[in-house]
Simulated assay, not measured.
Amino acid sequence: MRCVPSLTICLLFSLAWPATLFAQDEDYATVTEAQAQLNAEGARLAGEGEHEKAIQLFKSSLELDQLNITYLNLGRSLAKLGRCEEAVAAYDQVPTAPKVKVPTPEELKSILEGYKADLAFQCPARIVVNCNLEGITLQLDEQAPVACDGQALSVSPGSYTVLGKLGEQSMSFTVSVKGLEQADINMSFVRPPLAPEPIVIHAPDEGPGWLATGGWIATGVGATLLATSLVVDLAVLTPMYDDFQQAADAGDQRAYGSLKGTLQDGQGVNVGLMVGGGVILVAGASLLVVDLLSGGEATEEATPVTLVPWLGQGTGGLAGALRW
């Protein structure tokens, strides 16, 4: 009985023949009735696309005894379900397993070669890309980029373009793979130079604003004038006033007149120092207060407050203007 290689069911029906058909030659296995029935039923289910059920029957037959044709059809059903590695393992048993007389070993060999060739189109392939640097991304055809981590990319049989990128660098490879094959690609990029650390030039801290500066200067000047007035009063005017009183008590008109003019001039100067120092001190303190209230942000272009000290005959004051 000759079977068409593409029809698995035909192969298995040949097992339904009486076992004596195979027992006539010591080179062939003896097929029991149970094996023949399991294989025939498995062939029927496989022909109907019920490969899971067919696989169970083929395995049950192999538990009774091994036959080359059973391994062949087991591998075929496994391949139909995409269980390619298991199918290859089953196919590998065909040449060494006990053989049946019909189909002949030569016919099974031809069929096996055809089934193995089908795996190149039925089973997934793998592409492994090895990268020499971290940070490399891979893009397989139009798929989303992924990191190059050395893991195998599972693909259907066919041709693919693998694009690798690292910064501004890129390279691409075109590979063709068949089912169960693995294509290895090595991508070597030049390590990009490290970007120099940016040099940050900090602007010097701005000093206090003109209000604060003027306030501190005015306060210092005012305090100095007041201190000078106090020293003049204690160290100069007080002794001079004592001499003036003594001259008056002694009736020394010459000394009295000389000391009187000098004392009046000294008192006038001292009053000026005291009044001027006080006014300037108040002005400086006012500038500091205004600077504090304005947050120290006043500038010459937008002066919020103008303060001008003034002196008059026996009096003094502080004139100011506020703008907003």
Rank of each mutant, 00 (worst) to 15 (best):
P208D: 11
T213W: 12
E48S: 07
D205W: 15
L62P: 04
A298R: 09
K109Y: 04
Y71F: 11
E26L: 15
D92N: 07
E86I: 15
P5G: 00
A79D: 07
E41R: 14
K99G: 01
A19F: 11
A302H: 12
A183W: 02
G42A: 05
G135K: 05
V175M: 03
L62N: 10
E300Q: 12
T137S: 13
V279N: 00
D25E: 15
A247D: 09
N39L: 14
Q169M: 06
I280C: 14
T8W: 02
G272P: 04
C3L: 03
P192D: 02
Q151F: 14
Q313S: 06
T174C: 06
F173Q: 15
M274S: 14
G317L: 13
Y28R: 13
T213G: 05
T224K: 00
E107H: 09
N132G: 03
G316C: 15
H202L: 05
G209L: 04
A29T: 00
G266L: 06
K116W: 07
M240A: 12
L237K: 10
I217Q: 08
P193V: 02
P145A: 11
N68L: 09
L74V: 03
P5D: 02
G261D: 07
P192M: 03
T306M: 09
Q169K: 01
P309D: 08
G150L: 13
W210E: 04
T96A: 09
T262H: 05
D184P: 02
L234I: 14
A223F: 11
G207N: 08
C3T: 14
C84G: 04
T303V: 11
P98E: 00
A117C: 00
E300S: 14
V88T: 05
Y71M: 07
R323F: 07
V162G: 13
T213Q: 13
L318D: 08
A212Q: 06
K80R: 15
D233S: 10
Q35I: 03
A212D: 15
S77V: 01
T219I: 06
E197N: 12
T299M: 15
